[in-house]
Design a protein around this nucleic acid. Sequence first.
DNA 1: GCAAAAGTGTTGTCCTTACACCCATGC
DNA 2: GCATGGGTGTAAGGACAACACTTTTGC
Lengths: 264, 264
Amino acid sequence: MLPLKLVPAGLVIRIFCYMKKKITVPVPPDKGIIKDAVSLVTSYPKVPLTVDCVIFGFKENKLKVLLIKSDLDMFNGKLSLLGDIVQDNEELDAAAYRVLKQRTGMNDVFLDQVRVFGSPKRHPGGRVITIAYCSLLNINHHELKIHDNDLHWHTVSTLKDMAFDHKQIVDACYTWLQKRIQEHPLGFNLLPDKFSLRELQNLYEAILGVTLDRRNFRKKFASMDLLIDIDEMEQDVPHRPGKLYKFNFEKYEKNKRKWVGIDF
Amino acid sequence: MLPLKLVPAGLVIRIFCYMKKKITVPVPPDKGIIKDAVSLVTSYPKVPLTVDCVIFGFKENKLKVLLIKSDLDMFNGKLSLLGDIVQDNEELDAAAYRVLKQRTGMNDVFLDQVRVFGSPKRHPGGRVITIAYCSLLNINHHELKIHDNDLHWHTVSTLKDMAFDHKQIVDACYTWLQKRIQEHPLGFNLLPDKFSLRELQNLYEAILGVTLDRRNFRKKFASMDLLIDIDEMEQDVPHRPGKLYKFNFEKYEKNKRKWVGIDF
DNA sequence: GCAAAAGTGTTGTCCTTACACCCATGC
DNA sequence: GCATGGGTGTAAGGACAACACTTTTGC
């Protein structure tokens, strides 16, 4: 065991799941030693597997998500996530990156698996399991050139009524993002390389749905010492221009917090 | 927007994933409006889907995980997680609960999805996607009655060399647990209903792999006011007996922390 | 009485919060 | 010169970290 110094920022515990289910099931069958793995696997029931990407962007101080209109007739043009079938022999992450690349042309993007949605009834055409991926990208880094299926950025806060269970998936990813952005500097993926503190604060306020004290926010980031002052100013703003910064990825990686504590 | 009071325990940000991948892919085909969802889904490639349960317990001050010996001949008795195929029309969580119930007889257990493992080569019999679930249970609440495939509790810290990618899965769940136990009072699922503060501290120390200051630990939990002093003492200990407590689930649920802050 | 663990308080430090005024720029 | 947001400091309170001695019980 390591001797521990509890770090100052300390003990944190938040949500709690105490799940109860009453289920009755038979005792598992004992199959003995299995020689032929291939025929075993062949005997398994199979389901189609997709990835769905919740691609977040940030524009005009609003969190946006990239959506299309569903191409399923029965959904009658309801909004849908970008997704695709996972190909044979394709890694799951690779499938998600492929969707991103196909739709945005970007391949240099944050991506993380969030969770699986696999309710038997979630797809009207039969059971389809989908793995939800969350991506963050800077909207200005690319323009949507392919507008198939009315591809567009939709404001997250005004979203409702999507195809499939996609609203649930967006909600899960949004909750995931809200939590993650407080623990990791993910937000920088949504901003240009150079950004002002105001933009950074707007991002946090928009995602967390709160207002923050400007002085304390600036002090916080200043004390973390992870922003590089690039000695440039904003251009073309109708007020006093702010300083621009870059995020210091190297320094962050070096000094990553080993976080130990308890805080429910 | 809510006016925000940043909570005292404050701003926290920890790990950071900045993933980059270079991928070239074709533009997605435009299929037009699809009338027949069923035949669309039927046309999809399909894969077998399983759940694997990482079932943690706590005994003799060590974190344990419930394992069997693999019944695949080629793994030659290597250790394996408890898993099963997801049945047609079965909810994913239900499949995981079913595995738990089959193997432990318990149906009143913490369970949460952790992530999907779907590398094409992870199963020697062909591609099989598995969803990893993490469970926490009190070892004393049941005894393993069915010892098929040498079902047993294995100390987590001495685990190596498992069948499939199961070591990776255990590692992912262990990391997940370490993080979660600091944010949510999950640990109580691993303890008896009545426990002493020493047991609680041992649990935290074992899972986090650290040593904690006893006085500070006690003060922390005392100040959270989530433990019910049931006015009983430990029995049959070869030293001064400690007080026993229960966890106050209702109170916790009521006062769940709304946690807003930034702390990388 | 000895071993083993229970139980208990204080102090210093650091972080967070709350809060108000002047400054630079574009128009 | 006016509107807009940029930029700055301080004081009070709260949480955490460090640290040692007495008490209770079983043997």
